[in-house]
C-alpha cells in the first residue's frame, strides 16, 4: 500500500509540474478590468437613479441598482453572451452580483428541458445554492450574536 501511495504522490507531483497553468498576468488583468467595469457600471447606474429620483433614500437606490444589474446579466445569459464574457473575465464576472444572476439563470435555462416544474424550478438554485444557504445561515448567526452582545452590554 505504501508503495502505491508513494508512486501516486510522485505521479501527482509530476503531473503538477507538466500541467500548464493559467497565464497569471493576463487572467489577472482581464478579471481586473472586467470586474472593475462591472462595479463602475453599477456606480453609474446608482448615480443616474439618484439624479432621476432625488426623493428616494440610498437603500432603495442601492436595491434598484442591483435589480438593474441582475436583470441585465440575466438577459445577457439568455441571449448567450454572458459566458463568452466570463470565459475572459474569470473572477471578474462571477464575483460581482451579475455572476450570481448568471448562475441562477443559467441553471434555470439548462434544465428547462425537464419541464418548468421539475426542471427549471427544482434546479434553479443548483449552482447558486451554496451562496444563498451560507448567506442566510451565517447572517442569522451574526444577527443573534449581535443581539446577545448588545444584551450583555446593557
Amino acid at each position: 500500500m505504501n508503495e502505491t501511495n508513494r508512486r501516486n504522490e510522485r505521479y501527482n507531483e509530476y503531473v503538477k509540474s507538466v500541467t500548464p497553468s493559467t497565464s497569471t498576468l493576463k487572467s489577472l488583468l482581464n478579471s481586473f478590468w472586467i470586474g472593475g467595469l462591472t462595479c463602475l457600471i453599477g456606480q453609474i447606474i446608482f448615480d443616474l437613479y439618484k439624479w432621476i429620483f432625488p426623493q428616494l433614500d440610498a437603500t432603495n437606490i442601492t436595491n434598484f441598482t442591483s435589480m438593474t444589474l441582475i436583470s441585465v446579466a440575466i438577459l445577457f445569459t439568455g441571449l448567450g453572451f454572458y459566458d463568452v464574457i466570463a470565459r475572459r473575465g474569470g473572477a471578474g464576472s462571477f464575483l460581482p452580483i451579475t455572476g450570481f444572476a448568471n448562475a441562477i439563470s443559467s441553471a434555470s435555462l439548462e434544465f428547462k428541458t425537464e419541464g418548468l416544474i421539475f426542471g427549471t424550478s427544482v434546479k434553479m438554485f443548483s449552482v447558486v445554492g451554496p451562496v444563498v444557504v451560507n448567506g442566510i445561515f451565517w447572517s442569522t448567526v451574526a444577527g443573534i450574536i449581535h443581539l446577545i452582545i448588545s444584551g450583555l452590554m446593557l
Binding site: 500541467t19 500548464p20 497553468s21 493559467t22 497565464s23 487572467s27 445569459t77 439568455g78 448567450g80 454572458y82 459566458d83 464574457i85 466570463a86 470565459r87 473575465g89 474569470g90 464576472s93 462571477f94 455572476g99 448568471n102 448562475a103 439563470s105 443559467s106 441553471a107 435555462l109 439548462e110 434544465f111 449552482v127
Partner: peptide, 17 residues
C-alpha cells in the same frame, strides 16, 4: 457538460488543461 460540469450558459473559466 450538463451531466459532469456546469450549465451551458454558466460563465466559468476553464483551466488550460
Amino acid at each position: 457538460e450538463r451531466q459532469y460540469r456546469y450549465p451551458l450558459e454558466y460563465g466559468c473559466q476553464r483551466p488550460p488543461y
